[in-house]
Simulated scan of single mutants.
Amino acid sequence: MDDGRSSRGGGVPALQEKALIRPGVLDDAARAAYAAAYTASRDTSGGLGSMDAGLSGAALFEVVLAGEIVCRYALRIEQCTNGAELIIVAAAGGVRGVDLVASVLPHVETQGPGAERITLRTRRRGLVRKLLKQGWALDAYCMGKRLKK
């Protein structure tokens, strides 16, 4: 996965050494956490989507560290003409001093049995930079414009 050190934590052990990833549930606490991924500043649907629609049919997961849920993420597998695609539908959470992208993403990449690709949509430029360093590629630009009614 990585060298056991956080890129931001100055020697803090990586999350995967101590954490448990388990199936998640969509309870009130999860709804509140996932709501952070659907704020206006992070919404990738142009305001047309909703958290419930985005999470519908997705497999939910929780990252537990020292008995606390520190991250939640939702995955969906889409069957395409030429193979399956693992889609990260939503992710939320954080641990001070731990790079969750570097620590959790290698495990997420193994959670799509038969998937040939993994994709996500984001408005976060910092996340894009992190993903590019981990071998991801920018596949396309997604442009949007509100139409007058």
Rank of each mutant, 00 (worst) to 15 (best):
G11F: 08
G11W: 08
P13S: 03
A14Y: 00
L20C: 00
I21V: 15
P23V: 09
G24Q: 05
L26I: 12
A29D: 13
A30P: 00
A30R: 03
A32G: 05
A33Y: 02
Y34C: 03
A37P: 03
Y38P: 02
T39G: 03
S41Q: 10
T44G: 03
G46Y: 13
S50E: 04
A53Q: 11
A53H: 12
G57Y: 01
L60P: 00
V64T: 02
L65S: 06
G67A: 01
E68K: 14
Y73D: 05
A74G: 01
C80M: 12
N82P: 00
L86G: 05
I88L: 13
V89A: 13
V89G: 10
D99N: 14
V101Q: 14
S103T: 04
H107L: 13
T110Y: 04
T110S: 10
T110V: 02
Q111E: 07
E116N: 13
R117T: 15
T119A: 12
R121N: 11
R121D: 09
T122D: 02
T122E: 05
R123G: 13
R124F: 15
L127I: 05
K130V: 01
L132C: 06
D139Y: 13
C142R: 08
C142V: 14
R146G: 09
L147F: 00
L147G: 00
K148G: 00
K149H: 12
